[in-house]
Every structure is written in structure tokens, then in C-alpha cells.
Amino acid sequence: MDRFISKLLFIAACSSIAILALIALFIFKEGVPIIIRSGLGHFLFGRIWSPLEGQFGILPFIIGSLWVTAGALILGVPLGVACAVFLAEFAPARLAAVLKPAIELLAGIPSVVYGFLGVMWLAPIIRVHLGGPGLSILAASCVLAIMILPTIVGVSIDAIHAVPRSYKEGSLALGATEWQTAWRVILPAARSGILAGVILGMGRAVGETMAVIMISGNATQIPHSILDSVRTLTANIAIEMGYAVGDHREALFATGIVLFFFIMALNTVALRVARRRF
């Protein structure tokens, strides 16, 4: 009996890997043929995406994803790490106990709501004050920065808490201020954990779909400035999936493959980094 239960539980535990394998299998099965037909180089580095003419180059979307993600990290990482340092080292315990779940709640807000806010409020501000169409890399980056904040803050706080207390006490005993201690002792010691959080946040930014569709403008050309409209890999899939057939649909799955590889690489790196100690 116990052996039977044990088997059953083992099977359940394997379900995650099974799902992951199925996802890979189906995405690859649908997407690989078109990559082979048009050539990996043409697919990845082609500058023109024109499904009607059978042109499937996703370079604009790769660049779009990179721009948007880079923007989100530039805005979100300093803010996130600062929040983490404040909550872990400076804020009174009671305040931290309220603020931490509040920041976690940012992850709970539907991405479509963020997108909506971007469209209704942020994009018009950018359009009026900075020019361009408003729906742009900048708008998407701002919104994504807020969306990845909980990931970065959460993982960073854990990393800071994992730094031995004696490091901090030693530093304070030598006459360093709390800030000097945080900057010169705690952050360096926690850097691999924080880096893991940043990479995970990066994964979230790359993978985000609905908010990005709503606020990035979705133009299929390669952007030249942060005020340009841009289309990401995820947006490309989501926008055209509704009506795509044949080669076109395969090309969208192929876009999914690129995304899948990218995310897997990021996760693997994050796990490696997180395992490293000090």
C-alpha cells in the first residue's frame, strides 16, 4: 500500500517535467519546419516580417524585446535593490512587515491593468512632453519596471537576509555607518543572490505579453530611439495568433521557440548564479 502511494506521488512529482517536455515538444514540432525552410540565419536576422509575402524575419522583435527589457532593467533594478536594502536593513520591522506584501501585491495586479494604465495615462504624457507616438519603448519599459519589481525585491531581500549577521555587526563595530555597511559589506556579500533576482526579473520582462502589446505600439520595424513604437517577440505571437494559418502560424511557433530558448537560458543562469555562495 505504502509503496503504491509512493509510486503515485512520484508520478505526480514528474508531472512538471512532463509538462515542460510536452511544451518543448509541441512548440518545436510546430515551429521547427519553418525555421528549416527559411534558414535559421534568415529567420533570426531577417529584418522584414511580412507574412503575406512569406517573409519571416524576427530581428525587429528580438531587438524590440531586448530594448524593452533593457529599459525595464535600467529603471527597475536600482529601484528594486534600493527597496530591498531599505526593507531588509533600514526600515523598522513593523513597517517592513506592511511594505513587503504591498510590493508583492504589484505582482498580483493583472498585466492587462498595467497595460490599460499605460495607454490611458503614461503614453499620453510621453506623447505630449517627449514627442513620438507615446506608445513606445519608454512606456513599455516604465510599466515593465514596475511589473518586475516584486521579483527583484523579493529575491534580493532573501539574499540580504542570507548574509551572516556577524558581517554586519563586525562592520558596525569597526565604526562604519549603516549605509557604509550596507554598501561595502552586505551588498557585495549578497550580490549573487541579487543578480539571480535581476535575471529572474529579466525573464519576466522578456516573457510579459499583454501589457507590452497594449503599450509598445507594435510597429514591425527596427526602433531607432526609445520613443519609437516597437514589437516584442511575445507581442508578435499574441497579436497574429488569432488569424495566422499555415506558414504564418508555424513562424509564430518558431518565434515561441526563440522565446523558449531565451527563457530557459536565463533560468539556468539564474539557478547557477543563485547557487553560488558569496
Binding site: F26, I27, G256
Partner: peptide, 9 residues
């Protein structure tokens, strides 16, 4: 870590 759009596909 898999993005939701991939689950969609």
C-alpha cells in the same frame, strides 16, 4: 519561468 504566451501556444 515559462512565459504565459508559451502556455497559450
Amino acid at each position: 519561468g515559462v512565459p504565459s504566451i508559451i502556455f497559450g501556444l
